[in-house]
C-alpha cells in the first residue's frame, strides 16, 4: 500500500504548491482586481486568448483573480484556524495524558461534554450575532475544532508517559513543564502534523460553508465558498462560474486530504493488513 501511495502524495504536494503559488502571484500580476465592476465585460466566457482566461462574472469582474483571492482566503483561514485548534488541542491533551488521575478525568469529561454541543449552529449564531467578522470566523472555527486533536494527543501522551526515558528523566528530578516541553511534545510532532494536515481541509470546508450561506467573508471580497454560491445562482446559463471555483476548492481539499493520509500512514508502523493484538 505504502508504495502505491507515495506518488499520489507527491502529486498532491506539487499540485498544492502550484495552487498556492498561483494564488499568491496571479492577483499581483493581473491588471484586474477582485472588486471593481466592469459593466461592458459582463459574463465573458473563458477563453485561452484574450484578457479573461476564466471569464468574467455578473459584474464583469475577472473570475481568475477572484478565484485566486478565494484560494488565498480559504488557505489563510484553514491554516490559521488549524494552528489555533492544534495549539489548544495539544496543550489540553498533553496535560490530560501526562497528569493523569483526577485532572485527566476533569479535562477529558469537559471534552466529552463539548462534543455533545452542536457547533455548526453555535458558530452560525455567533456569526449572525456579531456580524460578518473575518477574524471571528477563524477564531470560532479554531476554538471549536480542537477536540479531536486533544483526544488523539492524550492517547499518545499516555503511551509516551510509560516509556523508560520518561521514568529516567523523572528520577533525575525534571519538572513537569520541562518534561512536557522537552520530552513529551517533541514525540507528538509527527502525529500532530498529520492530524493538522487533515484538520485544514475540514476548516476550509467549514469556512466555505459559512460563506456559501452568506455568513462568511464580506463582498466584494470572495472566498471559494461565496464564489460557489454566486456560481450556483448563474449555473444554468454560465456553468463555468460554478465549475471553476468548485474545481479549485475540491482540488485544495483533495490534495490536503491526500497529504494528511500519507503522513498518517507513514507514521503508522503497522501499515495496512498487518494484524496486531
Amino acid at each position: 500500500m505504502s508504495r502505491a501511495t507515495r506518488p499520489g502524495a507527491l502529486i498532491a504536494a506539487l499540485l498544492l504548491a502550484l495552487i498556492v503559488a498561483a494564488a499568491l502571484v496571479v492577483p499581483w500580476l493581473s491588471p484586474y482586481d477582485y472588486a471593481t465592476p466592469a459593466w461592458t465585460e459582463i459574463f465573458r466566457s473563458p477563453t485561452v486568448s484574450g484578457g479573461h482566461p476564466f471569464g468574467t462574472d455578473s459584474l464583469g469582474r475577472d473570475l481568475l483573480v477572484r478565484v485566486m483571492w478565494g484560494c488565498r482566503i480559504s488557505l489563510l483561514v484553514g491554516i490559521a484556524a488549524s494552528l489555533l485548534s492544534v495549539l489548544i488541542g495539544v496543550c489540553w491533551g498533553a496535560l490530560a495524558g501526562y497528569a493523569g488521575g483526577r485532572l485527566d478525568g476533569v479535562l477529558m469529561r469537559t471534552v466529552d461534554v463539548l462534543y455533545a454541543i452542536p457547533f455548526i449552529p453555535f458558530v452560525i449564531v455567533l456569526e449572525v450575532a456579531f456580524g460578518r467578522n473575518f477574524l471571528l470566523v477563524f477564531v470560532a472555527i479554531g476554538a471549536v475544532s480542537w477536540l479531536d486533536i486533544a483526544r488523539i494527543v492524550r492517547g499518545q501522551t499516555l503511551a509516551i508517559r510509560e516509556q523508560e526515558y520518561i521514568e529516567a528523566a523523572r528520577a533525575l528530578g525534571v519538572r513537569t513543564t520541562t518534561m512536557l516541553r522537552r520530552h513529551v511534545l517533541p514525540n507528538l510532532v509527527g502525529l500532530v502534523a498529520a492530524y493538522a494536515t487533515l484538520a485544514i481541509p475540514g476548516v476550509i470546508l467549514f469556512e466555505a460553508l459559512l460563506s456559501f450561506l452568506g455568513l462568511g467573508v464580506h463582498p466584494p471580497l470572495a472566498s471559494l465558498g461565496s464564489l460557489v454560491a454566486e456560481g450556483a445562482n448563474e449555473m444554468q446559463a454560465h456553468p463555468y462560474l460554478l465549475v471553476l471555483p468548485a474545481g479549485f476548492l475540491a482540488a485544495i481539499i483533495l490534495c490536503l486530504n491526500r497529504l494528511g493520509d500519507a503522513l498518517r500512514e507513514s507514521l503508522d508502523p503497522r501499515g495496512d493488513g498487518d494484524g496486531h493484538d
Partner: peptide, 18 residues
C-alpha cells in the same frame, strides 16, 4: 471515496441539479 470526502455538498448539489 477520496473525491467524495473532498467535494462538499454545496458543490455536488448544484452540479446534480445542473
Amino acid at each position: 471515496a477520496m473525491l467524495g470526502i473532498s467535494i462538499p455538498v454545496f458543490v455536488t448539489a448544484p452540479l446534480l441539479i445542473l
